[in-house]
Write a protein that binds this DNA or RNA. Structure first.
Lengths: 346, 346
DNA sequence: CTGCCTTTCTGTATCGGTATAGCGGCGGTC
DNA sequence: GACCGCCGCTATACCGATACAGAAAGGCAG
């Protein structure tokens, strides 16, 4: 039993293939009576309407926007920050009629998403500019918006004002009177090289936040202690270093994520340190968890809805033929809760 | 400047279009020397490789699996249960080389995802069988797997053993000695009709859980009090009813979700009731939040990874040409934490 | 009754690929 | 020296639709 196509219906009804196509796609092009007959025949033969792939080919539009993630899709769904971004992006795209396809980086199959999945544009979330996936997308000359991650030549981008947020966080601690401050950061010093001052990172989020912390601290002549791993998520190595740090605790800790800050809270509890009396802790991101831990975390909020909206708006304007345009860094807000206080008088 | 296609390259190199195609897709079909020349020309002309839409048309495969959600994509990313499911499903599909496309139900654009987005198969998560989106997908005769939601004729399904989990939860309260038990459930009695006994619901999750609770309670001759709304998420109406309930509190409450249970916890605190001393509370799902609230919630755990894996496995087997096959209900586990205790001796 | 404009439908070309059969040339076998 | 098989490439026919330019039929003004 051959597949049912426009031609099948056309033969059945005794009209041209074109007329059947019009019955589905341009109803005003034929009489209501004939259209009804065509549709009835289609129904009878079990025709679902124009084939999506064929239509995508001729119309040159798929209705799909891809999202390439630095991590595997699995990890992206674990991280509350990327979930929040996906949420806003998916909602914005849905409003504009686009479906969001999560592209993976598994290149072993015969279909490599970044190269072979049909789409009208893509969002590149926190990816290395030189990664294969990004290369594939660039080669296709698709409209692309980069979100976080290092700059990609010729690609519009949406990013947080990491530096400003970090500066505000550091300044908050300085204003409280702290001078002995540690920084907990991932994505730097992967191979144990001596750290620069300020330390360097190829991980854009950490890079911006480091710059902000150092800007404030150096202005106050404070030299921070650095606790770092190469990993960009909280891992056992980082946990161990945090515990080392708290053996001779500073009075305050700046963390590059709320998750890292929660680890510090945990380690402080183990070490018998009271937060914020003995140790002030500042996170970053303001994920839902931040306000639920004990004590609720002082942190730098980023507005994930705004980030998603900005990315979608930038992409939609390109999909409509607009030129890629720069989006200014998204503002952050310092949220002061109960994990920070003046240092204990010594 | 016309678009660069296989033909452009073919003309440039002076070979047939077919040879260029082979250079990309079947390297063994031409000499290495010629292939190198073709690829060099492609590079020079900025050809990204075979067009995805065209390839999808001829090969009949897209590498995309759609996921249709009952709610908007936005809400799906808010609910920890659906996020957990998406996580597992996306990971499983990525391993198999498929990208996951989130289909929205916005039918106003010219591209209706369920009808017009090219895909090889779809997962239908907790959707009404008679919804337009489901109808579109069925008409296309795509391989489909249903996850949660009411049965869809001829569609393989993956669902939780809601009934067994609920029965275990109710039995746990009975074993503790509770006789005055309330049930908090959404998705029933939307228009205020008198409730049946057990109450009816068109919302499959609630339906299964109700059946389980009643099975255990009726066997013990306990008649529960019902607190319900038509909404399937926690809303103000439900919050208000919970507060009414606690004006004359039962000794224990069975909730159809952890989120609802957290509301009960909150309302109990407001009413000056101590959990579990004055009131035992049981949730459902075991979302991450459940173990973090105070007191940690006794709840029925569902394994979202298993659910995602089961759905993906079922779909993959159909994509490989297998027949749809029934997947047995997924097991649940009662997790006893600190929100349940024997009723206060009266 | 003629000419012109609509309405309604059809024919052909095209979208950008891939499958498949076939063709010339070359080395090798008997 | 005729025959065979293989290698490397090409020609042709699709895949399933849509765009666009007509063409037949009918309506209306002059």
């Amino acid at each position: 039993m051959a597949r049912v196509t426009l031609q099948t219906i056309a033969d059945e009804v005794g009209v041209s293939r074109m007329t059947v196509s019009n019955a589905f796609s341009r109803p005003d092009q034929l009489s209501g009576e004939l259209r009804a007959r065509v549709l009835a025949a289609a129904e009878r033969l079990g025709y679902a309407g124009p084939d999506a792939a064929a239509r995508a080919l001729t119309r040159g539009r798929t209705g799909v926007v891809g999202m390439l993630l630095e991590t595997s899709p699995f990890d992206a769904f674990v991280d509350e920050v990327s979930v929040g971004f996906m949420r806003a992006a998916a909602a914005g795209l849905a409003d504009a009629g686009y479906s969001l396809a999560l592209l993976h980086s598994n290149r072993s199959g015969d279909i490599v998403p970044t190269r072979d999945v049909a789409m009208d544009g893509a969002i590149v979330y926190s990816c290395a500019p030189q990664s294969e996936g990004v290369g594939d997308l660039l080669r296709r000359r698709l409209p692309i918006v980069r979100v976080e991650g290092l700059p990609i030549e010729g690609v519009a981008s949406v990013a947080l004002d990491d530096e400003g947020g970090a500066r505000a966080a550091a300044q908050h601690l300085l204003d409280l009177g702290h001078r002995d401050i540690a920084i907990v950061a991932g994505g730097i010093d992967a191979d144990g090289r001596p750290l620069h001052d300020p330390p360097a990172s190829d991980y854009s989020v950490t890079r911006g936040r480091l710059a902000g912390w150092y800007a404030a601290l150096q202005a106050a002549d404070v030299v921070p202690r650095i606790v770092a791993t190469g990993a960009t998520s909280v891992d056992d190595a980082l946990r161990a270093r945090i515990r080392e740090l708290l053996a001779a605790p500073p009075t305050a800790v700046l963390c590059w994520s709320d998750l890292a800050a929660v680890e510090v809270l945990e380690a402080a509890r183990e070490a018998g340190l009271s937060v914020p009396a003995d140790l002030s802790v500042v996170g970053f991101d303001d994920v839902p968890l931040a306000s639920r831990v004990t004590p609720p975390l002082t942190t730098v909020r980023q507005d994930l809805d705004a980030k998603g909206d900005a990315a979608v708006r930038a992409l939609l304007s390109m999909l409509d033929g607009g030129a890629p345009e720069a989006v200014p860094p998204l503002a952050t807000t310092l949220v002061v809760r109960e994990s920070t206080a003046p240092p204990r008088a010594s």
